[in-house]
Amino acid sequence: MLQSAVRHVTVARNSIGFRKTCSLPALIQIPRILFHATARVAHGSGKDLKNAPRINLHWIGKKGEEFTTDGIVGESILEAAHRHEVELEGACEGVCACSTCHVILEEPVFESLEDPSEEEEDMLDQAFGLTPTSRLGCQVELSQDMNGLKIKLPSATRNFYIDGHVPKPH
């Protein structure tokens, strides 16, 4: 089978070090771990974040898995998530018109932030698994004092997995 054959290619080129030059178009989708994410231009913000200081972000994923990425001071939580391919949607492309970038913060941080706007509150009302410390990722800008920020992604399965069904990890 070709698919498995191609899998083999990934392995092969990994071991012989073709990471940079190998140009198999159909393969671009799989090797997320092989390609380093390149910094995405902050959507719509027009900010130059190249030389901005970096902080650490601690994520708690949809299945409870924890991981750490960096965050650039001045970008939004959504932008940081997309730079690191964290599973956070952004259907409206970060303009506070959907609730797909819903994240849950810890209470002290949530309290320290400026209150969400009316527009954000309205969109939060449509978010699944709304909590008292929910925010939209596109509306929270990272600042220097947020180093070590804990960001929890709401469980994606909350509304649909009923009667004890547990999705298999892939």
Binding site: M1, A5, T21
Partner: peptide
């Protein structure tokens, strides 16, 4: 010219993602 690639013609392993074609 750039690289040397080799394909296996037999499946090395089967996983859910390559059963679906």
């Amino acid at each position: 010219p750039k690289h040397h690639v080799c394909f296996s013609t037999t499946p090395l392993y089967a996983s859910a993602s390559n059963i679906i074609s």
